[in-house]
Every structure is written in C-alpha cells, then in structure tokens.
Simulated assay, not measured.
Amino acid sequence: MADPANVVKAAPGASGTLPKSVVATLDSGAKAAFETAAAPGAIVGVRTPQGIWTAAYGLADPTTKAPMTTDMHARIGSVAKTFTGTLLLQLAEEGKLGLDDPIGNTIPAFPMASGSPCACWPI
C-alpha cells in the first residue's frame, strides 16, 4: 500500500494548510457527520491547490480505546465509488460537466485523457 504522506506530497498544487476559516468549516462538518456515522473512528482529509487538511475522529480500536490518528493507514474500499458517482451526478445536474464528456475536459493531466469518455479505462 502507498504511504499516504507520499501520495499527498506528490499531488500537484497541494502544499501548506488550508485557511483557518476553511478548516473550521471542514472540522465542524466532519464532526457533525461522524456523530451520525456507525463507525468507531474516521480519518478525514481534503487536498486542494489552496492547501491540505487532515483530522482524525473517534477510536481506532474500541476495545483498547486507542484513538484514531491521521498517520494511520486505512482502506477506503468501495465506498469511494459511491462518493465519486454522487459528486459526478451533482456536477452534471449543475451543468458543470456532462456524463459523456472525456475526462480530459476536467482533468487535462490524466493519463490518456483525450479522446473518448472511456479512453483512460482500457477494456
């Protein structure tokens, strides 16, 4: 598994921390969402060209009461597909992208981004 710190460091345009007002909003939203989640702990992160923010909530091990920390490795699993699909549908509804648009329209640096919508996913 890739080291998350190296993945974040390699991200183009991501450096420094987000402004305190943005961090406060993200933290408030994450805390509110975590309180309603059926999970003992969570690691939350946001990476934008304006900066990076990570935080940990709850317990890594409910039995030992070990706290969750941002340096832990956790698999996100298939839930990322649900988040991504929801975001894409919301952006399409807002007219910010089309579901048939080539990915290169939105992410020009994506490998094999030009051409058909599925050019980056060889079958």
Rank of each mutant, 00 (worst) to 15 (best):
G104Y: 04
T64H: 02
P62K: 03
P4S: 02
A109Q: 11
Q50S: 13
G58K: 02
K65C: 03
R75D: 11
A55I: 10
P111Q: 02
S78N: 09
D101L: 07
N105P: 12
D3Q: 13
K20V: 06
L89W: 07
A33T: 11
H73R: 11
A119K: 14
V23I: 11
S78Q: 05
G77P: 04
L91S: 13
R75V: 07
I43E: 00
E35N: 15
L26V: 11
D100P: 06
G95V: 05
L89R: 05
Q90N: 08
A39L: 13
G51F: 04
S114P: 10
D71C: 02
D27A: 12
V79E: 00
L26T: 10
A119M: 09
K20Q: 10
V7E: 14
D100F: 04
C120K: 10
Q90E: 06
P4G: 04
P49K: 11
N6C: 03
A32I: 12
S28Q: 15
P111H: 05
T17H: 12
K9Y: 07
T84E: 05
E35L: 13
L59I: 13
E93N: 10
A39D: 10
S15K: 06
A32F: 09
A11P: 02
C118T: 13
A92M: 01
P19D: 08
P62M: 09
P122K: 02
D101F: 05
A11D: 04
P111M: 03
F83W: 09
K31M: 07
L91N: 13
M1I: 08
V46H: 01
M112V: 04
K9M: 05
A66W: 09
V46P: 00
V22E: 15
M72D: 01
Y57K: 03
I103Y: 10
A11F: 03
L97D: 01
A92F: 00
T25K: 12
A24E: 12
I52A: 03
G98L: 00
I76T: 15
L59W: 11
T106W: 14
V23H: 10
K20D: 14
M112Y: 08
V7D: 14
G51P: 01
P108Y: 06
L87N: 09
G77S: 03
T84N: 14
T70D: 01
A38C: 09
F110R: 07
L26S: 09
P49A: 04
I52L: 13
K31P: 04
G45K: 06
F110G: 11
I103K: 12
P49W: 07
P117V: 01
D27N: 12
T64Q: 05
F34Q: 03
D61M: 00
A74C: 12
T69D: 00
P12C: 02
L89G: 10
A109P: 08
A14C: 10
Q50P: 03
S116W: 07
T36M: 02
L18D: 10
P67Q: 08
T54W: 08
P49E: 04
I107Q: 15
E93I: 04
G85R: 02
A113S: 13
G58I: 13
S21I: 06
A38S: 14
A11V: 03
M1A: 11
G29I: 03
A56K: 07
W53I: 01
G16L: 01
